[in-house]
Computed example of a mutant assay.
Amino acid sequence: MNSIIFRVGSTVVLPFALLLSLYLLWRGHNEPGGGFIGGLIAAAGYACYALPRGHAALRKVLPIDSLQLLAFGLSAALISGIAGLMGNAAYLTHAWTEVAGIALGTTLLFDIGVYLTVLGAILTFLSLFLEQ
């Protein structure tokens, strides 16, 4: 995969993929989108960047280990359900509040957890693939 076109194109694709994934993550707790598709798009951007460059480039551009991303994601998704238990409701009954006219809730925390879990799982697989 030593194509100059792929190498240059992936430099442009990565930032746009990350921005699109964050947009879909943010919009997903109220409209279609969310953590799963956002995590897939972010992972695709990292994959496009790393495939022509190798494992060292993926480590350089990724600020945190992929297994840690996976662990943070699972933790965030699990923690998001505690608000329901504290309010004498079922686990994962989401709580909502409004801050400066913006509706925020534990669904966003759950979506962030799914986003990080999907991103961490795919990047772990990609990292293992690139090491060989």
Rank of each mutant, 00 (worst) to 15 (best):
M1Y: 07
M1N: 06
N2F: 12
N2G: 13
N2P: 05
N2Q: 12
S3Y: 11
S3G: 10
S3R: 14
I4R: 15
I5M: 15
I5Q: 11
I5T: 10
F6W: 14
R7Y: 03
S10Q: 08
S10G: 11
V12Y: 05
V12T: 02
V12K: 11
V13K: 09
V13F: 15
V13I: 14
L14W: 04
F16Y: 04
F16G: 08
L19N: 09
L19Q: 14
L22G: 09
L22E: 01
L24V: 02
L25Y: 09
G28F: 13
G28M: 11
H29Q: 07
P32H: 12
P32N: 06
P32Q: 05
G33M: 06
F36W: 08
G39L: 01
L40K: 01
I41L: 07
A42Q: 03
A44D: 00
G45R: 01
G45M: 06
Y46T: 00
A47T: 14
A47C: 11
C48E: 03
Y49D: 00
A50L: 10
A50F: 04
P52V: 05
R53D: 00
A56W: 11
A57E: 01
A57R: 02
A57T: 11
R59Y: 10
L62C: 08
L62N: 07
P63G: 14
P63E: 02
I64N: 04
I64A: 10
I64K: 10
D65A: 14
D65E: 15
Q68D: 07
Q68R: 14
L69E: 01
L69A: 02
A71N: 08
F72R: 07
G73L: 01
L74T: 04
A77D: 00
A77E: 00
I79V: 15
I79H: 07
S80G: 08
S80L: 06
G81N: 09
A83G: 14
L85P: 09
L85I: 15
M86C: 15
A89F: 08
A89H: 08
A90W: 13
Y91W: 13
L92T: 11
T93H: 05
A95F: 12
E98K: 13
E98H: 06
E98C: 01
V99P: 04
V99M: 04
G101D: 00
G101W: 14
G101Y: 05
L104H: 03
L104S: 00
T106P: 04
T107E: 15
T107S: 11
T107Y: 08
L108F: 11
L108W: 04
G113S: 08
G113M: 08
G113W: 05
G113D: 01
V114H: 04
Y115Q: 05
L116Q: 09
L116W: 11
V118P: 01
G120N: 02
A121M: 05
A121K: 09
A121Y: 04
I122Q: 04
F125Y: 05
F125C: 11
S127C: 03
L128D: 07
L128Q: 12
E131G: 06
Q132S: 03
